[in-house]
Write a protein that binds this DNA or RNA. Structure first.
Lengths: 279, 279
DNA sequence: TTGGTTTTGAAATATACATTCCATAAAAAA
DNA sequence: TTTTTTATGGAATGTATATTTCAAAACCAA
């Protein structure tokens, strides 16, 4: 039998579709997973483009995208696309204009520089629309912890460094986890329940960070993860997961929005901590 | 002769299109006016639907809509539709929520989170208006150097880490200067003329970084400094100085704009380097 | 390995859609 | 009014796009 097509009616609202994908994506074939990841983070592309250009963007064949829609239970691509489109309807125009204020400058001769600025702005704009609730929850958790262990390598390293700096400034004990992979795991095993792990990882996800998250969750240690997709291996149901989508320019993703999130997270945590101490 | 088709290029941005329509709609034939009115008030419909359903909504025939597009100077309906679609791109997800968040932004009741986002956006916006020339100069200098030594502590540390990561990724040898203050000075003295120093420092300026800049300039070693004011001690006449103004929220400055600058700097340098190698 | 199964890519087909064309209606000029 | 020009609707056409099909590749269990 082919990959089981979900027999139930497919989600008719984007929100449901998104969470369905987060749940089941690990059971999907490889290519379908790529499509899922892309669809969740670039819904506007799915809504506005043809199968051909989307497939090229993702780097899969058009058939794959069609099968993706089918495997979710939709009648076909167009059927699925209509869900994405529905989620864009009734947009208030003034807001759209505001977002594109920079675009006008770009129309003719955008300097390379401006392109980066635009991408960063977009990412932040998108970020600011996410649930504030989640962020506050995360802040509280950080404030509650006796020690915050921070893990993040490669492109995530600057975020670790910044969060470490900020948390300490805000009066919280924070430690950056460093060392050889095996040592890291050993360190993680020593984290107690009153402490917590703050994991940062972006695609391509480093195995190290993932392992740390595994260890902590297994030990009932609280985890907050910052990542670029809720499909990321460090996004778990047991952890608070803050998602950030940085746009790509010239093949590279920035960190502007991520830094904004980090700053906010640290400052909010600091406030919580201050309240706790004064009581 | 048919109704005059505007000979000039049609508007390529929705905003322009909108005001053009408001200007000239009285000179349009009756049916075309209906279409114009509908288009400005329901741009999402135009973006997301086929000629057939739009025409039914307005109560005109499909041909009319096609002619409308033509009369504005577009190649056809699809061409015009792409303008409408462009105005919706990168705007995603829960629109209900989105609009609420907009309202909150407008009505001063912004969540802490949104305040950070706005501040970051402003900073980037301002940044994107600065001289590109300087940035390109800096990129070239980076590309020319055999080794780039990076110095930056405290709040500047994440920037160091990021630039280090990016430069190495782009194929340039880069080293982060670490160690005790006296050791740092010794290391700096060993930097040769074919190499360079990239110094990052924000108020309150660390004495360390300042000293490094002093040593290098004395030895005729090229210096690029990234700082938050041209009055900063690491801004020198002999050095290329990139200035960044991050806005303050709740007493803290972020790093979003700085990261954007860093990304751009590294990528541009990478391009230069690639050109050099290919020749 | 081998045989069976699932997944994938590429070409073939069908469908939906924009576009064109023409005949007719309305409006403007004579 | 008649004549000419402009605007409109409806059917015919061609093109772009989704969908189907099928064979090859990858995967897995025995």
């Amino acid at each position: 039998m082919q990959h089981q097509q979900s027999k139930q009616q497919p989600p008719r609202a984007f929100r449901q579709l998104k969470s369905w994908l987060q749940e089941h994506n690990s059971t999907l074939p490889k290519r379908l997973q790529s499509v899922a990841a892309y669809a969740v983070s670039h819904p506007d592309m799915i809504a506005l483009n043809t199968i051909a250009v989307i497939s090229e963007q993702i780097g899969v064949t058009p058939s794959t995208i069609f099968r993706f829609a089918k495997s979710l239970g939709y009648k076909g691509f167009s059927d699925m696309q209509s869900i994405f489109q529905e989620s864009m309807r009734h947009i208030s125009q003034p807001y759209a204009e505001r977002i594109h204020s920079l675009d006008r400058q770009m129309s003719q001769k955008a300097t390379a520089f401006q392109r980066f600025a635009i991408a960063a702005n977009r990412a932040i704009e998108k970020l600011s629309q996410t649930e504030t609730q989640l962020l506050l929850q995360a802040s509280h958790k950080l404030a509650d912890a006796n020690i915050v262990y921070i893990a993040g390598q490669d492109r995530a390293a600057p975020v670790s460094v910044y969060l470490h700096y900020m948390l300490v400034k805000m009066g919280m004990q924070a430690v950056i986890l460093e060392g050889t992979p095996s040592m890291l795991v050993d360190k993680a095993k020593l984290i107690s329940a009153s402490e917590m792990l703050l994991a940062i990882s972006f695609s391509p996800y480093s195995v190290n960070t993932r392992e740390l998250v595994d260890v902590c969750i297994e030990q009932q240690v609280s985890v907050i993860s910052i990542t670029d997709s809720t499909l990321s291996p460090i996004a778990r149901r047991d952890a608070i997961c803050l998602e950030i989508i940085e746009h790509e320019v010239a093949g590279f993703r920035g960190l502007s929005a991520t830094m904004c999130l980090a700053q906010c997270l640290a400052v909010e945590a600091g406030k919580c901590r201050a309240n706790m101490n004064s009581q």
